[in-house]
């Protein structure tokens, strides 16, 4: 397994360490000479000093054998071109690009990048979800953010306490998957009555996440 990472800085360093520990043969391409020297001293990785958006440099870095390329440079256009060249010229099956302008997330996917990640978008989503409810823990998001798995705790103010699931008017395409009550694990159905301090694992979509939280916990602060 061969991974290529483009960029400089700590995130490249730590990502490379992860790949190496998972057994990937890892190559880093960095435009910055000092960063490249630093990587090659500290990591068991092949380090190439050069422009990862140049086809010749990608070839030299072994792009033909790579199963994944992750581009973490600080300009959106560079990450796009690196991913496109990797895919179209060298047949790299999975490409991941960092995007700085959140609007580019969808555009990059349209243009053939496998996964485009906007830090600004992720942070603002997390902040939005965290500020309103204290009893909500966002566990993970699946299917590129289309489904979220969230844990909520029913406290005194929650309208769902002492009511059956079916009375809550939850939207059809959301699910209370599990109820954790003391040490008991309950797979709930419509007649399951919720109790104070129940911990619920819920599956929601971005369009109904807020609605589900309101039905279970009431209005946030």
């Amino acid at each position: 397994m061969h991974a290529i990472i483009l960029g400089q800085g700590k995130s490249v360093y730590h990502l490379a360490r992860r790949f190496i520990s998972k057994g990937y043969h890892t190559t880093i391409i960095s435009r910055d000479a000092a960063a490249a020297r630093n990587f090659s001293r500290k990591l068991k990785a092949t380090v190439v000093h050069g422009d990862g958006t140049d086809p010749g440099v990608l070839e030299e870095a072994g792009a033909r054998r790579a199963s994944i390329l992750v581009s973490l440079m600080m300009e959106d256009q560079d990450n796009l071109v690196a991913c496109q060249l990797a895919k179209e010229m060298f047949g790299v099956p999975r490409t991941v690009a960092l995007v700085l302008d959140p609007e580019n997330e969808t555009v990059f996917r349209q243009l053939g990048v496998t996964v485009a990640i906007s830090v600004a978008h992720m942070l603002s989503q997390i902040i939005e979800e965290q500020v309103s409810y204290e009893d909500v823990i966002n566990l993970t998001s699946l299917a590129q953010g289309k489904v979220a798995l969230t844990e909520v705790i029913l406290t005194e103010t929650a309208p769902a306490v002492d009511r059956e699931l079916r009375e809550l008017g939850l939207p059809r395409n959301a699910l209370v998957a599990t109820v954790l009550r003391n040490d008991e694990v309950i797979i709930p159905h419509g007649e399951t009555r919720l109790r104070l301090y129940d911990r619920l694992l819920i599956l929601t979509q971005p369009g109904n996440h807020g609605q589900v939280l309101r039905a279970l916990l009431g209005e946030g602060e």
Binding site: T53, E75, D76, Q77, L80, V81, Q84, V107, L111
Partner: peptide
């Protein structure tokens, strides 16, 4: 810049 031009054109 090549990459700027390639991105703007594709967008």
């Amino acid at each position: 810049l090549d990459n700027v031009n390639l991105m703007v054109a594709q967008v």
